Simulated scan of single mutants.
Amino acid sequence: MPDILRPLGTLAGLAGLSLCLIAGGIRLAGSHWLMGFEIVTLLQIGIGGMVLGCFSLLVHLTHPARRR
């Protein structure tokens, strides 16, 4: 399981960051809606992705190394 957490954390963090950047750019352009979703909702989904990425990487880093 800890072997999956590093790529999962990286992908979730990058996806969350890109969604936050997209939502912020659209909001700065003056639009409140995108494809039926409010921009604040997309921003919160992006924040959730970054939090998932942080927790996944934290668990990966704090997990004791396997001994072979």
Rank of each mutant, 00 (worst) to 15 (best):
M1D: 13
M1K: 03
P2D: 04
P2N: 09
D3T: 11
D3N: 14
I4L: 13
I4S: 10
I4N: 10
T10H: 06
A12D: 08
G13F: 13
L14E: 03
A15P: 05
G16P: 08
G16Q: 09
G16I: 06
L17T: 15
S18F: 15
S18R: 01
L19Y: 09
L21W: 13
L21S: 12
I22H: 01
I22Y: 10
A23G: 12
G24P: 05
G24R: 02
G25T: 11
R27H: 14
R27G: 11
A29V: 00
A29Y: 07
G30C: 08
G30K: 11
H32I: 09
H32N: 08
W33N: 11
M35D: 09
M35K: 03
M35F: 13
M35L: 15
G36E: 04
G36K: 04
F37C: 01
E38P: 03
E38G: 04
I39S: 03
L42E: 01
L42Y: 08
L43N: 04
L43P: 00
L43Y: 06
I45M: 10
I45A: 06
G46E: 00
I47N: 06
I47A: 15
G48K: 03
G48Y: 05
G48N: 10
G48T: 09
V51G: 00
L52K: 00
C54I: 14
F55W: 05
S56A: 15
L57R: 07
L57Q: 04
L57E: 00
V59M: 07
V59A: 08
V59H: 03
V59N: 00
T62C: 05
T62H: 02
T62I: 04
P64M: 01
P64S: 04
P64T: 12
P64E: 07
A65F: 05
A65I: 13
A65M: 10
R68W: 08
R68Y: 08
